[in-house]
Every structure is written in structure tokens, then in C-alpha cells.
Design a protein around this nucleic acid. Structure first.
Length: 429
RNA sequence: GUGGGUAUAGCGUAGCUGGUUAACGCGUCAGUUUGUGGCACUGAAGACCAUCGGUUCGAAUCCGAUUACCCACCCCA
């Protein structure tokens, strides 16, 4: 029985749901193309060190959520996110020697060994884009605009864009000191985890859900006041670009992001819920100007975002937006008897060769049951193939939607005739 | 890793304080007289009541452990 149990935190995406995935993926690919992004496909696993260096040794993702295996003398890890491997591939293949910026996108699954909870899986799917080579705020604006277009074009109204700048290493250091100075007097009053945060990552002190800690943090210094001139200008220009694009945003000094490689701009698209604690991030990203140098490339600015497909799909269905569609077949052939069955096999084969989706009985059902089944699989037309039809070569095509019956002759012109009728019917919709 | 909840046919559920063949809806399959679906009606198949152990004359029902899932913390997509 254990055999029939999938690993914790994984999901089966069944045929009914796959239509939604396919449609969503197609939409994402098309949008990526509009913005000039080309697809890149990278390995599912990489050398472990790529992630510990790229994502950051101190992050939770690296410290306790990686699926790591040792094979031979090497350690490999299933990708916990898409950026590190993508950047590795771009550097390894010398893509930065080509015209900049490089724009790539990917649809892949990521793996994190953490506890399953609402909208979190151990294998989850992500659509991501990376733009490499531009230090300009206009690049930030384009990336954000793209994510924004995706969400709004899908009809997702109740998401809001939160942006922040976490500065460059220089100004972030100054800010961390300021935060420590601010919290130092009340340090004893913080919750246990915040005590740790004080030491390890003061930025996260502002992210605590404990109401007592929230209160203590109300008047805390915010990073935007500590940005260096360059970062400050960058952020201001980005805001003006977003205004010009008519993209609404909210400045949220609390966005920190869990991956170490971010610099300057960070942003999240978050669902709006009645209870703010129920809101969930469906898309997150930002600038990571230091990552490429960290991985051994020439210092090159870059940025991107990741969009969680599971989360996007649940948000869509919550909003009553369906990505699925009716999927059936164009013609269902209903053979009666052995001779007719063989004839139906031949006919469906040639119909399919002409690009017409055709099905026929493979269950040995009777007429009535076959009609029911044709209805079940959403056949647009049915055609009964019995002794009479085989003998006379005359048959009746039935439009399952309208009930209309159209006489036609089997034989050489049959497929062409059917094709014309089918196309006319499709256009009439 | 910590705390709370749930666990009954493919899916969604009922089964009250333990008592003979575990119920219902959806779905599946077959029929409703002869070659035409969607509706309706009739019937059938399908469950060792998560697993293991305990209490008891007797457990889906009570107790314990295990596992899985859900929710919260942490963190994130």
C-alpha cells in the first residue's frame, strides 16, 4: 500500500487539470516572447556548491531545505530555485559575450525539503525570467511591468505590488547597524526568534508576526533612509518609471526576501485577503547585482523574478478565473459489428492523418452506450457505421450540439467533406 | 523541528452515547423492446471503515502508537 503513496509535498496533476497548466504555460511563453525573452532549459540538479554560494550559506533554503545527494565524490542538489542554475548556464556558455542585455525565461520545477503547508509544496513549479547586463532602473521597470502584465491580463485583480530597495552591500551595512542600535534597548522584550534575528539578520526583525515585536518595530529606522546616493537615485527613478507606466505600487520597507543575492530593488506581488495574514506571495523578484561576481563571472548587474504556478493557479480559481477549456474530439465514429469496427479503425487513422481528432469505440459497446460515451468525451460530431452504411456508402453525420443530421457519402471525398463541415461549425461558434 | 485537527468505496459525505448483510450523493457500468447522446427511471459493480496493537462477549464507533493530509509557528513560490 505504501507503494501507492506519493512523497510528501508532491502532487499529481491529472489530465483534467493539465489543460489549465498547458493553457497557462502557453500564455506565459507568449508573454515572455512579447518582452523579448527566450527560453532556457537547465539541469534539474546542479553541484551543491552552486546553490550554497549563489543562494547564500546562511539562508534557510540552503541550510535546511535542500535535497542533496552524493554520487561518487561529488555532491549534487535538486534546484531549490531557478536563478542560480540559469546564471551558471549563461556564464558557462559565454552568453554574456553576446549583445546585452540577455533575456531568458524558464518554466521548471523546484525542490525544497520543508514542511507542507497551504500553497507550499516540496516540488513546485515556477515561471521565471532573468535579464542580465543592465544596471538601469528602466530594466527594473520592464521586469516589473512584465509580471504586472501577466497577472492583470489573466484577470487577477486582487493582487498588489509591493516594492522596496534593500540597497547595496555598503548601505545595507549601515542600516543593519542602525537597526541594532534601535532595538538594543528593548532587546530583552523581543520574542525568542527575534533575539536570534538581532544577531544574525537584523533586517528580519521587521518581519515578525508577533504583535509585541511589531509594536516595538513601529518606529524602527527604515532602510530607504539609509540608502547611498546611487541606490536612492535608482529607486527614485524606478518609481517614476512605474508611475509613467501607470503601474500602481506600494512601498513596503518590510520586504527583505529570503535569498541572499538580492540588491537594490526587491518586489513581490501579493494577494489581497480580508485577513492580511492570509495573503500569499505569488510572484517575487528583484535585482541581484552581486550574484554573477559571486559565482566567478565578471561583475555584471542582473535581475529577474519567479512566479509560482501552483499559487497562481489557486489564486486564479479563487477569483473564479478558469484556465481550462472543453477538450473533446471532432468526430466520434460509432461502429456496429466487426466489419464496421475495422472500417472505423481505418477511417479514424486517416482522419487523424489529416489533423482531425477522431475517436472510435474500443470497448465493444452497443449503439446507445457509444452515443453516451461520445457525449461524455465531448465529441462535436458522431457518425454511425453499421451494415447499411458499409453497403450503401451513405451515412449520417450528427452535430452533437445542435442535433442537426447531415447526410453524406463515405468514400474518397469523405474527409474533405467532413473537414469543411467541421470548420464551418467551428466558425459558427 | 514544535503545537492543534482530520483519516469511511474513484470523489464528496452520513454513521448519535460500541451490537447481526457499513448508508447517501456524484462518478463508473448495464438496462428502460428492436440503429442515435445530453434528462428521467431501474439495477449492478465498487470499502479488509489509514496502519498496527489494546480494551470488550462484540469496535468504523473507546484507548495508544505509527503514517499521511490539513491548519498555525519558521521560511518561501
Amino acid at each position: 500500500m505504501k507503494l501507492l503513496q506519493r512523497p510528501k509535498g508532491t502532487r499529481d496533476i491529472l489530465p483534467a487539470e493539465c489543460r489549465s497548466w498547458q493553457n497557462l504555460e502557453k500564455f506565459l511563453r507568449d508573454t515572455a516572447n512579447l518582452y523579448g525573452f527566450r527560453e532556457i532549459r537547465v539541469p534539474t540538479f546542479e553541484k551543491t556548491e552552486l546553490f550554497s554560494r549563489g543562494v547564500g550559506e546562511t539562508t534557510d533554503v540552503v541550510q535546511k531545505e535542500m535535497y542533496t545527494v552524493t554520487a561518487g565524490n561529488s555532491s549534487f542538489t535538486l534546484r531549490p530555485e531557478g536563478t542560480a542554475g540559469t546564471i551558471r548556464a549563461i556564464l558557462e556558455n559565454g552568453m554574456l559575450n553576446d549583445a546585452l542585455p540577455q533575456r531568458v525565461y524558464y518554466i521548471l520545477s523546484c525542490f525544497r525539503h520543508e514542511n507542507k503547508q497551504k500553497d507550499r509544496y516540496r516540488e513546485f513549479h515556477q515561471f521565471g525570467v532573468e535579464m542580465i547586463g543592465s544596471p538601469m532602473p528602466s530594466a527594473d521597470a520592464e521586469i516589473i511591468a512584465m509580471a504586472n502584465q501577466i497577472l492583470s491580463q489573466l484577470g487577477l485583480i486582487n493582487v498588489s505590488l509591493h516594492i522596496n530597495s534593500i540597497g547595496c552591500p555598503t548601505c545595507r551595512k549601515a542600516y543593519q547597524e542602525a537597526l541594532r542600535a534601535y532595538f538594543a534597548p528593548v532587546r530583552e522584550c523581543l520574542c525568542a526568534t527575534c533575539q536570534e534575528r538581532y544577531e544574525k539578520n537584523p533586517l528580519r526583525l521587521l518581519d515578525c508576526k508577533e504583535s509585541s515585536c511589531k509594536k516595538l518595530g513601529l518606529d524602527a529606522p527604515i532602510i530607504l533612509d539609509y540608502l547611498c546616493d546611487e541606490c536612492k537615485t535608482h529607486f527614485a527613478t524606478l518609481k517614476s518609471h512605474l508611475d509613467a507606466l501607470g503601474i500602481a505600487y506600494e512601498i513596503d520597507p518590510k520586504i527583505v526576501r529570503g535569498l541572499d543575492y538580492y540588491t537594490k530593488t526587491v518586489f513581490e506581488f501579493v494577494t489581497q485577503e480580508e485577513n492580511p495574514d492570509d495573503s500569499i506571495t505569488i510572484c517575487g523578484g528583484g535585482r541581484y547585482d552581486g550574484l554573477i561576481a559571486e559565482l566567478g563571472g565578471h561583475p555584471t548587474p542582473a535581475l529577474g523574478f519567479g512566479l509560482g504556478l501552483e499559487r497562481l493557479l489557486t489564486s486564479l480559481s479563487k477569483a473564479g478565473i478558469s484556465m481550462s477549456d472543453d477538450f473533446g474530439c471532432d468526430l466520434y465514429l460509432i461502429p456496429l459489428g466487426d466489419d464496421a469496427t475495422q472500417k472505423a479503425l481505418q477511417l479514424t487513422a486517416s482522419l487523424r492523418r489529416e489533423g482531425i481528432s477522431a475517436q472510435t469505440d474500443v470497448m465493444g459497446r452497443g449503439l446507445r452506450a457509444q452515443m453516451k460515451h461520445a457525449n461524455k468525451v465531448v465529441a462535436r460530431f458522431t457518425l454511425v457505421l453499421g451494415d447499411d452504411e458499409l453497403k450503401t456508402g451513405k451515412a449520417t453525420l450528427k452535430n452533437m450540439k445542435s442535433g442537426e443530421e447531415i447526410p453524406l457519402t463515405l468514400g474518397d471525398g469523405f474527409i474533405k467533406t467532413f473537414s469543411d463541415i467541421e470548420i464551418a461549425d467551428r466558425l459558427a461558434l
